[in-house]
């Protein structure tokens, strides 16, 4: 009987010790934890448009898509993000379009301005237009993780493949890294 109670006592002690250990690790983690939530985003300043966003997402259709900071756009007729290099004419002809899925819509505004909008249904996040826009234009086109699509994987598969290490975890309150005036949207909220 004494044998048994001693055993019970030891066991209870070990149980308490284990509870303390788990509590201790959790406590340490809580000490550095944030009550908020983190989401993945890519920094357009680091992006090199390697197309890995289009092909490495766990979703069949990537969560990364092109966004357009209208505040930065020059509304140019000869848009290097829209037109194939050496396009025969500056119009909406499929052969003149740079985008492999035709996801950029070009609309005439007034002489000499044209508006460019991204059709998110069609955009696959390959970054071809981003490269064109960045090379000759302002960089008003850039890639961003779309949080209505992103599954927020614990280890983002694109982040792992990103050759420029442009992906990072950002607070969910400021889930986008935007350019131009649009960047102010999240600066004001904190």
């Amino acid at each position: 009987m004494a044998e048994k109670t001693r055993r019970e006592f030891l066991k209870s002690g070990a149980n308490t010790a284990a509870a303390l250990a788990v509590g201790g690790v959790a406590g340490l983690a809580i000490g550095i934890a944030d009550r908020g939530k983190l989401v993945w985003q890519l920094d357009p300043e680091l992006c090199i448009q390697c197309e890995k966003c289009a092909t490495n997402c766990v979703l069949p259709e990537s969560a990364v898509k092109c966004v357009h900071s209208y505040s930065m756009c020059g509304y140019c007729d000869l848009c290097s993000g829209y037109l194939e290099p050496g396009a025969k004419s500056r119009d909406t002809g499929a052969e003149n379009q740079l985008c492999p899925t035709g996801a950029i819509q070009r609309t005439f505004i007034e002489d000499p301005y044209f508006e460019y909008q991204i059709d998110k249904e069609l955009c696959i996040g390959c970054g071809k237009c981003v490269k064109g826009c960045g090379a000759f234009g302002n960089g008003s086109l850039y890639l961003q993780v779309q949080h209505d699509r992103c599954l927020n994987c614990n280890e983002c598969a694109i982040a792992r493949a990103c050759p420029a290490q442009a992906y990072k975890r950002v607070p969910a309150e400021t889930p986008y890294i935007l350019r131009g005036e649009e960047a102010g949207r999240y600066a004001a909220s904190i």
Binding site: P85, P100, A135
Partner: peptide
């Protein structure tokens, strides 16, 4: 999806 301007 390379943006190729090598020709130019």
């Amino acid at each position: 999806f390379e943006y190729n301007i090598d020709n130019f």
